[in-house]
Design a protein around this nucleic acid. Structure first.
Length: 587
RNA sequence: GGAGCCGUAGUGUAGCGGUUAACAUGUCGGCCUGUCACGCCGAAGAUCGCGGGUUCGAUUCCCGUCGGCUCCGCCA
């Protein structure tokens, strides 16, 4: 038997035709004298009818089949009798009247139902991932991922980009995430590193005159996992020569709009809003703010600078900020509600959460007595507070005040149901700082990466106040999720050396780790820049999912384990010996 | 490294210091010619994650441990 149609292909137009379909038994309904089988393939479901009067042999066989058996059915497409149409099925107007049945393979009863509406433990889904992936939702996610990548390839091809592969076995470099290391058998004691991103390769491709490059690149980072972080993940990696920041931003907006139109038939408005890093932090307490709702952070540092409330006044004196959020209409929150929120901000380092409950004749608050009427009225005015509102304050060093309130802002939006799940809110965050001071190591780290070009206007700060230098870096944010980030790169040896110097890399180290790059910069390197998108996150958002595991066919658990294969696993002593590796593990 | 939540028939849940450990669904057998969450009758199916403690008695309380999830730290 040869397959002639997919299940979902069949409709009224095929009535009278003899067809062959193949797939899995979704459901068998045995009426004794008549058997219905819902046959499922990738395309969908069609109902097969086995009637002993028309095909005795097929009917007898059909009595033996069970869920998830793989079968082939030859039969005639017939219209369903009057009143027997199933409106929930795309093929609900027709039946396939079976003439012949072949059982291609049997199946054990699966550990869970192959259906969208079963709520199974994810552990079990991951152990039997090949069954989980049979579920239509999962197939939809994988198809969505395919279509997204296809749209990307089409768009970039049309715009003169070359898809180029770069090595997976590469060199460990300082800075950044922990590397996955691969021992070299041929070079005892030496290790490759799996790429955290193809960053340097793509820059060298620019030196090589490729001008426009992209890659759907697997990247590896040995860090702890989250709902949106896997040890290996996929980036859309892009680099271009002879362009400036605004060119890239607008081309990437165009690409995103193209993808959403092609894949989801959704219109994305361009250009995207832009916020500077400072503005994002000050107004939203995040460098990836979700702008689908308001609840902006309000700064009342000046208003309370001289107040009698010691916690505020002292924080101001120590260079901190007093900021807050107006939780509109939450004046009825109980002590317990506020305690919960206090606990919540403490996760992010805030030492407390002060509050005003605003009512008709002023404010109710344990700290109200420390403020005179003018101070209170200035605060209320600043928050545009109305009776029934709840004002929540954090007093702390700027980063703690901003970030804790930034998280509180998200939490309140969830509680108040302020987020429209259908909205697509894109924005660019630009003008990131080039460097970040690390108190523990007492040195600067690159906020983006060491190859990011400083803003040319800030070059004179390199010696005076490096922390103030802005970078030509940018992140694309969708609904509060960072989906992409990039920068204009350094392309001159002296600037790059200066950057390494700021990062505390001696010139010997710089030479040992990045000598090839510095040397390459001396052979006519074009100005260039690029960006990388997190494909998993992008597809997750497009699919409306909350974890990238749902758009990755074979993901790992939070402890970086593949439950299906049981990887990682032990290896033989012989293998280790060949690699010149001696286990130093416990036991 | 840390915090929180979860773990009971195949699956999803309920339960409680002493139960025959319950319900739904699935599975198996029987009946059934228009179902599509088919229906009806019957049966089987549990190391209550694992180890220890408290107790006359622990699935239940306590401690530890393992596994899963969410988060902090970490993620240029």
């Amino acid at each position: 038997m040869k397959r002639t149609h997919s299940c979902n292909d069949l409709n009224e137009n095929n009535v009278g035709q003899e067809v062959v379909v193949m797939g899995w038994v979704q459901k068998r309904r045995d009426h004794g004298g008549l058997i219905f089988v819902d046959l499922r393939d990738r395309s969908g479901i069609v109902q097969v009818v086995f009637n002993p009067e028309q095909a005795k042999e097929a009917f007898n066989l059909a009595e033996k089949i069970r869920n998830e058996y793989v079968i082939a059915v030859k039969g005639e497409v017939v219209l369903r009798p009057e009143g027997m149409i199933n409106p929930n099925l795309a093929t609900g107007h027709i039946d396939l009247a079976a003439k012949e049945l072949v059982v291609l393979n049997k199946s054990k009863t699966p550990p869970f139902y192959i259906s969208d509406d079963v709520d199974v433990d994810e552990m079990l889904r991951l152990k039997y991932r090949y069954l989980d992936l049979r579920r239509p939702v999962m197939q939809k996610n994988i198809i969505l991922r395919h279509k997204t990548i296809k749209a990307i390839r089409d768009f970039l091809d049309q715009h003169g980009f070359l898809e180029i592969e770069t090595p997976i076995l590469t060199k460990s470099t300082p800075e950044g995430a922990r590397d996955y290391l691969v021992p070299s058998r041929v070079n005892p004691g030496k290790f490759y590193a799996l790429p955290q991103s193809p960053q340097i390769f793509k820059q060298l491709l620019m030196v090589a005159g490729m001008e426009r490059y992209f890659q759907i690149a697997r990247c590896f980072r040995d860090e702890d996992l989250r709902a949106d972080r896997q040890p290996e993940f996929t980036q859309l990696d892009i680099e271009m020569s002879f362009i400036d920041r605004d060119y890239i931003l607008s081309l990437m907006e165009e690409m995103i709009a193209f993808i959403f139109k092609k894949v989801l038939d959704k219109d994305v408005q361009t250009p995207f809003k832009r916020l500077t890093y400072d503005e994002a932090m000050n107004r939203y307490g995040s460098d990836k703010p979700d702008l689908r709702f308001g609840l902006e952070l309000i700064d009342i540092t000046e208003e309370v600078r001289d107040s009698q409330f010691k916690v505020f006044a002292e924080t101001v004196q120590k260079g901190g900020l007093i900021k807050g959020i107006n939780a509109k209409g939450c004046g009825s929150y109980s002590r317990k509600d506020i305690d919960d929120l206090t606990k919540y901000v403490s996760l992010y380092g805030a030492k407390g959460l002060a509050y005003f409950i605003v009512n008709e004749d002023g404010v109710k608050s344990p700290i109200a007595k420390f403020f005179n009427p003018e101070e209170i009225s200035r605060i209320l005015e600043k928050f545009q507070a109305q009776p029934g509102d709840l004002l929540l304050f954090v007093a702390d060093q700027p980063n703690v005040a901003n970030e804790s309130l930034g998280h509180l802002r998200l939490e309140l939006a969830k509680r108040l149901n302020l987020i429209n799940p259908d909205e697509l809110n894109f924005l660019w965050v630009v003008d990131f700082p080039l460097l970040e001071w690390d108190e523990e190591e007492k040195r600067y780290f690159a906020k983006h990466h060491p190859f990011t070009s400083p803003n040319l206007d800030d070059l004179q700060l390199m010696d005076k106040d490096p922390g103030k230098i802005r970078a030509q870096a940018y992140d694309m944010i969708l609904n509060g999720v960072e989906i992409g980030g990039g920068s204009i790169r350094i392309f001159q040896r002296d600037v790059q050396e200066k950057m390494f110097d700021l990062l505390g890399l001696s010139s010997e180290e710089a030479k040992e780790k990045f000598g090839y790059l510095l040397e390459a910069f001396e052979y006519g390197t074009p100005p260039h820049g690029g960006i990388a998108f997190g494909i998993d996150r992008l597809v997750m958002l497009m699919a409306g999912k909350e974890t990238i595991r749902d758009v990755i066919p074979f993901p790992k658990t939070q402890s970086a384990v593949d439950l299906m294969m049981d990887a990682p696993s032990e290896v033989s002593l012989k293998q280790l010996k060949e690699l010149y590796i001696k286990p130093v593990v416990q036991q």
